[in-house]
Design a protein around this nucleic acid. Structure first.
Lengths: 129, 129
DNA sequence: TTACTACTTGGAGTTAACTCTAAGTCAATA
DNA sequence: TATTGACTTAGAGTTAACTCCAAGTAGTAA
């Protein structure tokens, strides 16, 4: 699979794909005899994981570390687990913060909706805007 | 309340507080006669909202637009509602992506945990790493 | 064989969100 | 009165994550 096809498939730019490889966020991609990238199933798995991590807002640095550990073999499994636990914690926190913000925005939305119907703003004393 | 106290209270730098004001992410903060910031309850509400939005990963630009609409008065309530709905949608999507990533990481974690116990990796054919 | 297109690399440029620096003001203490 | 420390501003610098560019090569169509 060419870089163009991969880029289209995952809605990501070719530049970004090359960038991910360059910074070692994914292992080196399989090449043709003349040095052109020819993504195999395994390469695609790494691309998917990278995109998945990034879409959740996890830093590239974490993914680089994970790939690095992976390439050192099975003795690094405990370290990889540790890394995965850490990222899970970060995601839990992110979710919590998103929920809090959603609650805050919902509150504002409901007040504005009432305001639109009644023509009056109805904030309580401790939450004027 | 001085900028120092506000910074300590919200675990945010004084520089960031000044920056938020400079880019108009919050309205101009109340000042003393000699021009020093003296945060009032209402100023703090805006700071809280700004921090809340940012902690959920929403762009500063959205907050700037919201403050801008607010300062134009009640006729902008429909526009503010629209903006809030948009940000809610963005947050829903973020949550979805986080959930997907958490599922993917959980899957890896469980496999690694089994591997640690049994000494063998147990990926199925379609998910080698 | 010439032209065209898609690929390659190294390196420079961009954007968002801070973060820091320098030079200056002001209130309070030694 | 001198100095200390917290504040002020404008503007420069930093970081993460891309994104673009220039110069070169490889494979295919006319």
């Amino acid at each position: 699979m060419t870089i163009k096809e991969v880029a289209e498939r995952y809605h990501i730019s070719q530049d970004t794909l090359r960038y991910y490889e360059r910074v070692k966020m994914i292992p080196e991609v399989t090449r043709t005899a003349s040095g052109i990238r020819d993504y195999q199933e395994e390469d695609l798995k790494w691309v998917e994981l990278a995109i998945c991590m990034r879409s959740a807002g996890l830093p590239i640095e974490a993914m680089i570390e994970y790939v690095n550990l992976f390439q050192q073999g099975n003795e690094t499994i405990p370290a990889r687990l540790e890394l995965l636990y850490n990222q899970m914690e970060i995601l839990k926190l992110k979710k919590k913060q998103i929920n809090e913000t959603m609650n805050k925005l919902s509150y504002k939305i409901s007040h504005y909706e009432v305001a639109l119907k009644t023509g009056k703003l109805t904030w309580t004393d401790d939450e004027e805007e």
